[in-house]
């Protein structure tokens, strides 16, 4: 028996050496230049060296485009290269914000921008409110001891894994003039509804599909929050004769609030950025009924006959400021949750 063990150890040693040998060589090879660099820049600056690859990507795809975008927003004309574009200062911003009455998009010079903002605001109001509400209800139900809990959790999370385009296409096929839903309505003796022709129905489905696609993610955050609440607290409340409503409003909700805040702010950020799902589902129509701010930027820069990069960049900067404020709020909310 001891002999067999020895043999096994021997093979293990050989394998280990075979695997370890090239790794050891590799580390030796890396060691020389890294030691040399450390001697030159000092050990305190070494973390920057390791962060450099990521910083380079971040700079190339985020920071540089951000500054380029700002530079473009200060120019006019239709030329692609910034060197060929005339400097116009804040003219694009002035054009965007030139309104007689901000509550009435038609009174603005760039009414499509304000229509996009108005549509986005309506979308966010309904989408975020119902998303948070449904996510909370779903999380509360999934947190209970129900039969097939794992299955139901998966069911609610699966749409999150789908590509937004796939989600939109699935629902488009369901909602089309000859789609499954209309076939069903007709089969029960109702009239066909042209969902993408009515502005209200189009907005409804834009909100509905968005909630369906993203709810699982927010449910998961809330579920994690619910599971972090000590079961003893509920038992203590039970001993105290606390009613179910009071338990929910005085114990569950306050303890879940930090997670709720994160969910609300994240949903707001995602809501402001909404584009792909709705673009594939409704194309922004009928008319501009579901054209949101990101689609306005996309159309202005790339699909309109006159490609107005300057105006699109200015609108992007406005959107960027909104997202920056929301992100700061989200960071503050996360910090508060971690402190609690």
């Amino acid at each position: 028996m001891a002999h067999a063990d020895d043999k096994a150890t021997g093979i293990g040693d050989v394998l280990q050496n075979v695997v370890a040998w090239p790794i050891r060589i590799l580390f030796k090879l890396i060691d020389y230049p890294v030691t040399a660099i450390q001697n030159v820049i000092g050990i305190r600056r070494m973390p920057w060296l390791f962060l450099l690859p990521n910083l380079a990507f971040f700079g190339m795809f985020v920071i540089i485009p951000l500054f380029m975008n700002f530079a473009y927003s200060l120019t006019g004309g239709t030329e692609l290269f910034i060197s060929e574009r005339p400097y116009t200062g804040g003219e694009q911003y002035g054009f965007l914000f030139d309104c007689d009455n901000y509550a009435d998009p038609i009174s603005c010079r760039e009414d499509r921008f304000w229509k996009g903002i108005f549509n986005t605001a309506v979308f966010i109001f309904f989408q975020v409110s119902f998303m948070v509400l449904f996510s909370l209800i779903t999380a509360l139900v999934l947190n209970r001891e129900i039969r097939g809990r794992g299955f139901w959790r998966a069911v609610f999370f699966f749409p999150v894994l789908l590509s937004p385009v796939v989600v939109a296409l699935i629902w488009k096929w369901i909602l089309l003039r000859d789609g499954i839903l209309n076939a069903f309505l007709i089969s029960i003796g109702l009239d066909r509804i042209l969902f993408f022709v009515s502005p209200e129905w189009a907005m409804f489905w834009a909100v509905f599909v968005s909630i369906w696609a993203h709810m699982g993610f927010y449910t998961l955050i809330l579920l994690a929050g619910l599971q972090a609440i000590q079961p003893d607290l509920y038992e203590a409340a039970e001993m105290d004769g606390t009613s179910k409503e009071r338990v929910f409003f005085r114990i569950t909700l306050p303890l879940l609030w930090p997670n709720m805040l994160v969910v609300i702010v994240l949903a707001l950020i995602k809501g402001v950025q909404v584009f792909d799902e709705v673009y594939v589902l409704t194309g922004g129509g009928p008319g501009t009924a579901t054209q949101f701010i990101v689609q306005y930027i996309y159309n202005t820069a790339f699909t309109n006959q006159v490609q107005n990069f300057g105006l699109a960049s200015a609108a992007s900067m406005v959107l960027g400021v909104v997202l920056f404020v929301l992100t700061l709020t989200q960071l503050a909310a996360t910090r508060r949750r971690d402190n609690d």
Binding site: Q230, D232, L233, E235, A236, E238, M239, D240, G241, T242
Partner: peptide, 14 residues
Amino acid sequence: AADRGLAMVFQSYA
């Protein structure tokens, strides 16, 4: 639990 008129001190303090 509430109707039995008892009070409980939990291990985790709750």
